[in-house]
């Protein structure tokens, strides 16, 4: 299901060229959170390339990618899958009312040692 506009936007936000991918699967081989993602890094690359983006926008994977950049660092073709995942995540949270994390949820999640950094980072990743 091709969605050209959406694809163009994702490519623009991310600056990634998915055509560089040679489908070696190293991103998914190196991903530390593979098992928590229903769409894996290599699938993000190939599905964005095909313009098949709606399923990715509904995917839980958007919130479980750790942005650890292992896939970016180790990709032999310099494709940068994590940047594509970020772009899809942004395409979701930039929509009205689509924030993944709400301030009122925070108090329940806190413990006394949790560093501010975690909360700030999560808001950056999950909310607009």
């Amino acid at each position: 299901m091709e969605n050209t506009n959406l694809k163009e936007r994702i490519l623009e936000i991310s600056g990634v060229n998915p055509r560089k991918c040679m489908k070696c699967g190293k991103c998914s081989g190196t991903c530390p959170n593979y098992d928590e993602m229903e769409y894996h890094p290599h699938q993000f690359v190939s599905m964005v390339e095909k313009g098949d983006i709606e399923p990715l926008m509904k995917a839980e994977s958007l919130w479980t990618c750790l942005s650890c950049f292992a896939c970016v660092e180790r990709c032999p073709r310099s494709v940068e899958p994590a940047k594509l995942i970020e772009a899809v995540r942004l395409a979701v949270i930039r929509q009205q009312g689509a924030n993944h994390l709400k301030p009122q949820d925070i108090p329940d999640k806190l413990d006394e040692d949790l560093p501010q950094q975690a909360i700030v980072s999560a808001f950056r990743k999950y909310t607009k």
Partner: peptide, 27 residues
């Protein structure tokens, strides 16, 4: 296996190999 090794971790006398199997779509 059609896929690529992403990380090798030496631990307790073994090499823990993490890799993708693209045909099975699993790690």
């Amino acid at each position: 296996v059609k896929g690529m090794v992403g990380k090798v971790v030496p631990e307790n006398g073994k090499l823990k190999v993490q890799a993708s199997d693209l045909i099975a779509n699993e790690q």
